[in-house]
């Protein structure tokens, strides 16, 4: 299925949302990404990716209550859908399968 193909950035975003559990909203996703990968995507780019992923059905979103620090504005929280989870699994299988097929090198375990 073509639509389950994930870009590298998209895959990272999905993974981060999965790990963040109930706390996944744009800025926490951005910070976690920065922590783990050192990349710092612009929020425009991030929102654009989130939008795309939601449209493809990998993500679900709901809006939280009013907050204090954002001038009273709500946050949008994201959760992984079952389809999204499946896509991550598929991608992991694909990679690990190929990885195991790599010939072992003598010096690799020092």
């Amino acid at each position: 299925m073509k639509s389950t193909q994930l870009g590298e950035f998209e895959e990272l975003v999905l993974l981060v949302i999965g790990t963040l559990n109930d706390e996944a909203y744009s800025l926490s996703i951005k910070n976690t990404l920065k922590e783990h990968t050192g990349r710092n995507p612009s929020i425009g780019a991030l929102h654009s990716a989130l939008n795309r992923l939601t449209k493809k059905g990998f993500l679900d979103s709901y809006e939280g209550g009013a907050t204090k620090s954002r001038g009273g504005r709500r946050k949008r929280f994201y959760t992984l859908t079952a389809f999204g989870r499946k896509a991550l699994d598929q991608s992991f299988e694909l990679r690990s399968g190929l990885y195991h097929a790599l010939p072992k090198l003598g010096l690799s375990h020092e």
Partner: peptide, 15 residues
């Protein structure tokens, strides 16, 4: 549909 969420993000970052 997007403006409240996006603006909230910008405000939070701004602060």
């Amino acid at each position: 549909e997007e403006i409240e969420i996006l603006r909230g993000d910008l405000y939070e970052l701004f602060e």
